[in-house]
Design a protein around this nucleic acid. Sequence first.
DNA 1: TAAGTCATGTAAAAAGTTACATGATTCT
DNA 2: AGAATCATGTAACTTTTTACATGACTTA
Lengths: 197, 197
Amino acid sequence: MNTLGYALLGLLAREPLSGYELTSRIKERVGFFWSTSYSQVYPALAQLEDEGLVSYRAVEQRDRPDKKVHSITPEGLDVLKAWVTAPIGSRPAREELVLRAYCAWVADPVEAAALFREHEQLHEERLSKYEGIQKWMEREWGDSLRRPDSPRFSSYAALRRGLGHEREYAEWCRWMADQLEGGGDVAGDDAQPLSLE
Amino acid sequence: MNTLGYALLGLLAREPLSGYELTSRIKERVGFFWSTSYSQVYPALAQLEDEGLVSYRAVEQRDRPDKKVHSITPEGLDVLKAWVTAPIGSRPAREELVLRAYCAWVADPVEAAALFREHEQLHEERLSKYEGIQKWMEREWGDSLRRPDSPRFSSYAALRRGLGHEREYAEWCRWMADQLEGGGDVAGDDAQPLSLE
DNA sequence: TAAGTCATGTAAAAAGTTACATGATTCT
DNA sequence: AGAATCATGTAACTTTTTACATGACTTA
C-alpha cells in the first residue's frame, strides 16, 4: 500500500465516491498537500479492491455517464486507522522555488525578483482563499471543530496547516523579492535590527 | 533536464565536487527542501556530462579512494542562470503528516496525539539547529548576506525558508496534539477567542 | 455544433527509492 | 579484526507524470 492508497481510503471513509470524484476532491480539497491524476487513481482503486479495502457498485445516471461508486470496507477502515498513527518516515519536501533561491546568486536579480513577486502574489491569493474557508468553517461547523472524532475537525486541521504554509511562504517570497530589489534589511519585519555593518 | 540536474549544477556553480560529495551536500545543506541518493546522482552526473554542462577530472588521493571531481562548464552556468528565473510549474508539496491529520478523526486520539507530539519535537529540534546556523551566518558572513550576487546570500535565503517552515510546522503539530489531547481552544494562541459554544 | 464537464481507463516515459555489488582506506 | 567513511556504480522496483483513447451528456 502506498500513500495514494491511504489518501483514497481517507476520502472514502468520509463518503462513497467515484474515481473521478476522488481525483477532483484531491485537487480541490487536499490540493495543497497532495496531488494525483485520473491515470493514477483508477489503477490504485482497482488495487484497493483486490485487497478488499474498498468495494463498489455501479450507479446508472440518466443525465450523465454512469459511474462506479466506491466505498471503504470495514477492513479498509481498520487499515486506515492503523496507518494514521503508524510511525512516519518523513521525506523532505521538494520545493523547487527554494532550490532556485539557493541558486539565485547566479541569476539576474531583476528577473529573479519578478519570479518571487509572482509567487508572493500566488500564495497571498491562496491565503485569502483559505482564510475565507476558515471563517466559513468556524461559522458553519462551530462546535464540531473541537471534536477529534469528527471529520470536520480533521478538515479544519488540514486547512490550518495550509493557512500557515501559505502565510509563511508568501512572507518568505516577499522577503526574497525585497532583497533582490535591493530594498530591505537582512532581518525580517518582525526581527530586531541587526548590528552588522 | 530534471530538477535534480539543476540542483547538481547549483552546487557545482559554488565549487567543484565529486558525486559522493554532491550527495552529501544535498543531504546536509539543502536537505530540508531536496533529497536524493547516490544511485540517482551518478547517472545524473553522467547525463550532465553528455550534455556538456559539467566536466570532470580524476583526482588521485593517497589517504582515500580516488575520485572524479566535477566542475560546471560555461554552458552549464548559462543553463542554470536561465533556469533560476524561468516560469515555474508549482507542484503541491506532498506532506504525508497533513494527510494523516486529514484522516485523524478515524484514529485513536491518544495515539494520534503522540504522533504529532513526536513531530512537534522533531521540527522544534530542527528549528533550533537552523537558528544556530542563522546566528553563525549573520556573525560570520555579515555584509555579504545583503548582496544578491553572493552565494552566501542564497544560502541564507534558503535557510530562512527552512526556519519559517520548521517554525510553522512545529506550531501546527503542537496545536494538533493539543486538540487531540482535548486541551485547547479551536483558535491558535495568537488568535482572538472564538465565541462558538 | 463546438466547447465543457463527467466518466473510465491504458501506455509510455520520467523521476525517485531500494537493493545489490565492489573496493580502498581509516579509525576503534 | 570489524566498523565506519569515502568512493563509484548497476539493477530492479515503485511512484508520478504525461500522452493517448474513448464516449455520454450538457450548455452556450
